[in-house]
Design a protein around this nucleic acid. Sequence first.
DNA 1: AGATTGTAGATGCACTTGCATCTTTATTCC
DNA 2: GGAATAAAGATGCAAGTGCATCTACAATCT
Lengths: 141, 141
Amino acid sequence: MPDSSIVDAWIALVQSQKVAVARVEARLKAAGLPALTWYDALWELEKAGEAGLRPFELERALLFEQYNLSRLVDRLEKAGLVDRAPCPDDGRGQMLKISDAGRVLRARMWQTYSSAIDEAVGARLSNDEADRLATLLKKLT
Amino acid sequence: MPDSSIVDAWIALVQSQKVAVARVEARLKAAGLPALTWYDALWELEKAGEAGLRPFELERALLFEQYNLSRLVDRLEKAGLVDRAPCPDDGRGQMLKISDAGRVLRARMWQTYSSAIDEAVGARLSNDEADRLATLLKKLT
DNA sequence: AGATTGTAGATGCACTTGCATCTTTATTCC
DNA sequence: GGAATAAAGATGCAAGTGCATCTACAATCT
């Protein structure tokens, strides 16, 4: 059985991220932009550059279920944000690359997203507190 | 634009709670138990005692959308865990009370849930660290 | 009292997620 | 090489969620 400090931290973790994420998602929605998952996927792909990523790599980077990733990529491809190509090295697989439109959208999202992060986190913690928070949170991973 | 400490804390917040929640949910599922939302609702109702709660109170306690709460209560009622009664004071409303079966299930869930919290949080943070984490997280709310 | 506005809760419809399973290609083991 | 096993990705179906809207009752304002 956990100590009450541990349970308190658990509850605070769940509640605080729910509140913070809700604030950020609301800002994106209000700006007519897609949700965070799209951003995360586009950003991973943009960081991967010309090499692109295999779906299973993206799946792990985003901590997504396989079937959810498969469908997310469907939607991103349909929206013209990501290009899917067969993978030369592995007949089962494919290579994903962000498109120009994807880069444009990602950059546009970042304007709203970053200011929402600033509002949800930056306005409530000093940089020093943010560092300490990140350090503690990373121990959970 | 947020400072990089702020963005780091944001990312850690989202990732860490995703990992921690996934661990806990997996434990509940493996034990054949319902998901966290059911627990949260049952616990709020159990704390409310004989007085019960109005759906809108539960909605606020759980940070749920109104329509999601309405359907969650449908499911809990169908499962015999919660009783719905018309509200004497307000003809529009209703009173929710946890049933005996609900109390039994909640207690049973807590055995698995608490040990999962211990594994996901307690095993990774000292009590002191957990206190500091909770304090920082609460500033976000 | 009667009309307006607000609040509690439900619900149809579209979309997303979870679960199980399937197909296809790689890898491993004999 | 051939059989068994494993990994990559897709998909049908059920369940959950988001959005808009609806109904019913309450509160307010004149």
